[in-house]
Amino acid sequence: MKNRIRMAAALGAVAALGVAGFALAQAQAPAPSIQDGIAEYREMLADGNPAELYMMKGEELWRTARGPRNASLERCDLGKGPGVIKGAFVELPRFFADTGRVQDLESRILTCMQTLQGIDTDREVSSRGYLRGETANVVAMATWVASESKGMRFNVPQAHQAERTMYELGKRAFFWRAGTHDFSCATCHGVDGKRIRLQELPNLTGNPGDGVGFAAWPAYRVSNGQMWSMQHRLHDCFRQMRWPEPKFASDVTIALSVYMGVNAKGAASAIPTIKR
C-alpha cells in the first residue's frame, strides 16, 4: 500500500513538472500580435482580389470609343504625354498647363472624357453616384490606370508654384478642425499607433504610414463589396467627420491628395489593394 502511495506521488510530481515545463515554454514563446493576425487576414483576402474585375472593365472602357465624339481615351495625357499610362499614377496629382489646374487621377480622367469624348461629366459624374453610370466608370478606369504603375515609387511633383500652393492648402485642410465633432483629418491620422477597434489608422503625415494609407487606393472594400478610389475614400472621411460633402474632384480633395501624395514619396504603389 505504501509503495502504491509513493508511486502515485512520484507520477504526480512528474506530471506537475511536465505541466510547469509546458507553461514555461508557452510563456517564453512569442505570442502572435494583433498586427500579425491582421496581416494574415489581409493576405487571405488578397487571394483572388475582386478589384481585378474592375481593372478589366476599366481597361475596356479606356480603349472603347464612346460619347458624342465616339472616341476612346487612348490619347489622354495623364502627365507623361498622350497615351502614356505606365508611371503616370505615382506622379499624380500634378499641374496641367491645358487646364491651368493641379489635378489628381480622377479629375484628369474627367478632363479627357470631356475633351476627347465630349461627355458632360459635370452632369454625369457626382459624389453620390459611385456605383452608377459614368461615376462608376471613372472609378474602374482609375483602378486600371493605377494598376499599371504597381510597384513603382511615388514621386508627386512640387516643381510648379501651383503644386506647392496646393500642398500647403492640403496641409492646412488636413489639420483644420471643424464640424459638429470638432474633427480634423489629423484627429485620426496625425500620429503613430492609433486604431479604431482592430483597424489601424496610419499616420498620413509621412512614411511609412502614408505608404499604406494614400498609396493603397484605389482599393476593394470587402465590408460593402465596392471599389473605392481616393476621391471616394476622402468623401467618406468627410462624412465621418460630419463635414459638408465636397463636390467630386473638388479642389479641397485634390489639395489633400497633393499633401498626402508628397508625404508618400518613395513608397511603392500596391494598387489594387483590398481593404476590410
Rank of each mutant, 00 (worst) to 15 (best):
A97T: 15
N263K: 08
L169V: 07
T143F: 03
Q26H: 12
P272Q: 04
A270W: 02
V145A: 11
N224A: 09
G67C: 04
L45V: 01
M7L: 08
N49A: 05
V191L: 11
Y54V: 04
N207T: 04
P244V: 14
G18E: 03
T253P: 05
G67R: 07
A25Y: 13
P32D: 00
C76I: 12
W243Y: 09
R66F: 02
I274L: 08
G190L: 10
I38R: 03
W62Q: 00
R195I: 02
W62D: 00
G213A: 07
G129C: 09
Y167G: 00
I109N: 00
R66A: 05
G225R: 03
I34V: 05
W144S: 06
R6L: 13
R63H: 06
M1H: 14
G79T: 05
C237S: 01
D192W: 06
P208S: 07
V222N: 02
M152I: 01
Q158C: 03
M241P: 01
K80M: 14
G118Y: 08
I254K: 06
F22D: 04
S127R: 14
G81Q: 12
D120R: 06
M152T: 04
P82S: 15
L116R: 03
W228F: 07
A46Q: 08
E134W: 09
G190H: 05
S149V: 05
L17D: 05
G48C: 11
G67S: 02
M166N: 01
T165F: 01
S72Q: 10
L11G: 13
L11M: 11
Q199N: 13
G81F: 10
Q28W: 06
E168L: 08
R101P: 01
E163C: 03
W176Q: 08
L53G: 06
C188F: 02
R221F: 10
G58N: 06
K247Q: 14
F238R: 12
E91Q: 14
S72N: 09
Y259R: 00
P50E: 03
G12D: 00
R69K: 15
S250P: 11
R4K: 15
L17K: 02
V191F: 07
G213T: 03
E168R: 06
S269E: 06
L256A: 10
V14C: 11
P208Q: 04
E91S: 12
G266W: 00
Q226H: 10
G225Q: 09
A39F: 10
G118P: 04
A140E: 01
F96M: 12
G170N: 00
D210Q: 12
G193D: 09
L201Y: 01
K57Q: 15
N137S: 10
H235Q: 14
A39R: 14
A159Y: 12
K86I: 11
R75Y: 15
T135R: 13
V125G: 05
S147T: 11
H181L: 14
D251C: 00
P202C: 08
Y167P: 00
L61K: 04
A97W: 07
S127L: 10
V156A: 04
M241F: 12
N224H: 09
A27N: 12
W217T: 11
D77H: 13
R132E: 15
L234F: 09
R128N: 15
V14I: 11
T64N: 07
E43A: 13
Q35S: 08
H189L: 07
E91F: 07
E43D: 14
S184R: 03
G261F: 01
E43R: 13
A15C: 12
G151V: 02
F183Y: 13
